[in-house]
Design a protein around this nucleic acid. Structure first.
Lengths: 154, 154
DNA sequence: ATACAACTTAAAGTTAACTTTAAGTCAATA
DNA sequence: TATTGACTTAAAGTTAACTTTAAGTTGTAT
């Protein structure tokens, strides 16, 4: 099965210009052309584009993805480099998830904060609370917020 | 206690130019000036900047943060808007964490994949595996990867 | 009084990852 | 064969969130 850039863009729900851009940046060096110069995508190219999408999700830049693709092109001799790169990305994602969970905890606390403020009609109600008045699940975020959110009635 | 832009930038570990930029964008309308025009930060302004940093962590743009700050300036009458905004950010973060956890699962699988390939000396080893050969914790990611990563020996 | 580091502004520059535009070519259909 | 929609390229434009530059001012220390 052969696809044009428009067809594959449609299937992957990305813009044709994006795929042409990836091509220009060397992310899909294996895509063949017709005698007239039109890109002819095979199913395996389609799959490569899925991989690129996946790697983007891991926070890799276009340049890093190109490095990875180049290594893939070289075959089994680059397995250890690829492994190291994947492990690096894994560490990055782990750190990001940790950071996001802290942010989520703060937002959970703030949601409760505004629910309480809404009921009372004022944010000032929170000045009257001490640690024991805060629901346990929000206490850690509360301690972090105390210094600025609460002092400033935000 | 009063701080200059350089002092506060140092304390928050951000560039002075960033703080000036935030000022220009209306994120810190409450900061006062000396008769000569120099910004004079108070401790509460310092705290506001901490809040801005926190909101940025939630993925809010400068424009959205400005909206939020403007609402804060208006006082208790904007509590419900602020609550809605925080709840919206919470939903966004929740979705992002979910996405990241899927990506992490894929990277965990890929780490195992390359460890195995490294031992075997080739990625082709994975063509010989069927679902039961994959460690259980990687099976979901394996099913997603099967279509493209494995077929292409990546 | 003078030096000098740190402040001020407006405006231009940076970066990544695209997107748009313009001018032209290809290939399928009437 | 002519039309037409989708393709091609190079180059310029876009966006957000800063950063840098240039020219000038402030305020503290000697």
């Amino acid at each position: 099965m052969i696809y044009t850039v428009g067809e594959i863009a449609n299937k992957l729900n990305i813009a044709p210009s994006t795929i042409r851009y990836y091509d220009k940046e060397g992310l899909i060096p294996f895509v063949e052309r017709s005698s007239g110069g039109i890109r002819m995508f095979k199913d395996s190219d389609f799959e490569w584009l899925s991989i690129i999408e996946c790697l983007k999700q891991t926070g890799m830049s276009i340049k890093e993805i190109k490095t990875f693709i180049d290594w893939c092109m070289q075959g089994d001799e680059t397995i250890s480099q690829r492994k190291a790169l994947i492990e690096k990305q894994r560490e990055i994602i782990l750190e990001q998830i940790k950071q996001m969970q802290e942010t989520l905890a703060m937002l959970d606390y703030k949601t409760w904060y505004y629910e309480t403020a809404e009921k009372a009609g004022t944010c000032k109600i929170h000045e009257t609370f001490s640690e024991e008045d805060i629901p346990e699940e929000f206490r850690d975020a509360y301690k972090r917020a105390k210094g600025y959110f609460i002092k400033n009635n935000i």
